[in-house]
Design a protein around this nucleic acid. Structure first.
Length: 419
DNA sequence: TGTCCACTGGAAGGGAGGGCTT
DNA sequence: AAGCCCTCCCTTCCAGTGGACA
């Protein structure tokens, strides 16, 4: 009997059931990724126009003004800039304009920026600038030489430009904006993209004025605009009738309430579709959107926790364990002593308290804990720390972490809660 | 009003890991 | 091989501080 059932299963391949289900996606689901640049960008026509007017100078062989673009995440800054890159390529038949896009979250050192730009002008591996080893001055002169090798206009896009300034100061921007003084025939301009409006406050006045020849601000999308964007993508991604009525307005409303983030809206739509697909559905409903919202929130947290270096994981665990013991909030000192105890147990040598306060700040930036400086008067001035994520879920991730095996069974002494 | 606590957070610097130059 | 220079992670040192309390 059992045998027969097993055989019956062998006959029907596991994949078949899923293959037979009507696919929800019409074609490439990349259409719903933020990296996809559609043929038109709804509700950004004005910005595209404005930037095009600035950049057209490059096609005439002269240097366009430097531009600073401000706007929150998912307001289409990067999309507009990349869109114009594509458009520019189409008309620049002579290939005299070089467009270099760099994300300063990834390339986050002055050396890295100069190196990446410099490498854009050579194909063969032999002449690539190494990612370390040379002095920055040296890389700068190599870059100059390559820029000036033939007459060209170079447009450098520094996405998340505030990140590199925060980390390294404005030296690199100073160098990039004065590069033109050292060039004989080529010209370079910089497009900076930032989601922090105030980042220019910390710049050297000379750099600030040079960099912001032109300024653009991208306002967040409202719910209706988001709906238009979603409708445009949905039409490419799904066959007619798949997206339930009310789904796009719902996603639009959710994303609009979270500072009009189009990226977030597209993610919601994609994940909702995937959830429906996985559960054998052939339509996307509002139910799937709600499920998608939960899933995305959960995934960002667990992913962030997984990526943490071991020491930071232990710091986070220290916070959670103190909370399990009943502390609603705690001071740096309390986190640190718990952290030391845990670190010793795992066999890692404990870091200094100074370093741990930095790690706590990092966890705060990631939104995993909440840390605010508070004074307790005579009780001293310290941070008040509490976790800001669902403890059980984070605990599960940490318990499955191989570097923390020693702590898997660890529970604090005289604990009050039962797990 | 001044004291004093428990830190905060800036600055400087060490050293490991990477890689070029001579 | 020795000498540089880069970044990253970390330590050491320390002046500065918000606010309850005497």
């Amino acid at each position: 009997m059992l045998q027969q059932q097993a055989e019956a299963h062998v006959a029907e391949n596991v994949f078949e059931r899923y293959l037979q289900a009507r696919p929800i996606f019409k074609g490439d689901r990349e259409v719903l990724r933020p990296s996809y640049i559609p043929a038109t960008l709804p509700h950004r026509e004005k910005q595209i126009d404005q930037l095009a007017q600035i950049l057209v100078t490059a096609l005439r062989g002269a240097r366009p003004s430097n531009v600073l673009i401000f706007g929150k995440t998912g307001t289409g800054k990067t999309a507009v800039v990349k869109y114009l890159e594509n458009e520019l390529r189409k008309v620049d038949e002579a290939g005299k304009v070089t467009y270099v896009y760099l994300n300063c979250e990834i390339v986050d050192t002055p050396y890295g920026v100069l190196q990446s730009v410099g490498n854009r002008f050579v194909e063969d591996a032999e002449r690539q600038i190494p990612f370390t080893g040379l002095s920055t001055d040296r890389v700068y002169s190599m870059l100059l030489e390559r820029l000036d090798a033939e007459r060209r206009i170079v447009i450098i896009v520094l996405d998340e430009i505030d990140k590199i300034v925060l980390k390294n100061g404005d030296d690199i921007l100073y160098q990039l904006t004065k590069v033109n003084d050292d060039l004989r025939q080529s010209r370079l301009s910089v497009i900076g993209i930032s989601n922090d409006l105030k980042f220019t406050d910390n710049l050297d006045p000379r750099v600030r004025s040079r960099l912001s020849d032109e300024k653009m601000v991208f306002a967040p999308y409202n719910a209706e605009e988001l709906r238009d964007i979603l409708a445009q993508r949905a039409e490419i991604a799904f066959p007619a009738g798949v997206v339930g009525e009310g789904v796009l307005p719902l996603i639009g409303a959710v994303a609009a309430s979270e500072h009009g983030d189009a990226r977030r809206a597209l993610d919601l739509l994609r994940v909702a579709a995937e959830i429906s697909e996985r559960t054998g559905g052939d339509r996307i409903t509002e139910y799937h959107v709600h499920r998608a919202k939960d899933k995305i929130e959960m995934d960002t947290v667990t992913e962030a926790v997984k990526q943490l270096p071991s020491q930071s994981k232990i710091v986070l665990l220290a916070v959670l364990i103190n909370e399990e013991k009943g502390a609603a909030k705690m001071t740096t000192g309390e986190v640190y002593s718990r952290y030391r105890e845990l670190a010793v147990r795992t066999g890692l040598s404990p870091l200094t308290q100074r370093r741990v306060t930095d790690l706590i700040d990092e966890l705060d930036m990631l939104g995993l804990v909440n840390a605010r400086v508070k004074s307790y008067g005579r009780g001293g001035r310290t941070k008040e720390i509490m976790s800001s994520v669902p403890a059980a879920d984070v605990r599960r991730v940490l318990d499955n972490d191989e570097t923390l095996v020693e702590l898997r069974r660890y529970r604090p002494r005289n604990q009050t809660t039962i797990f």
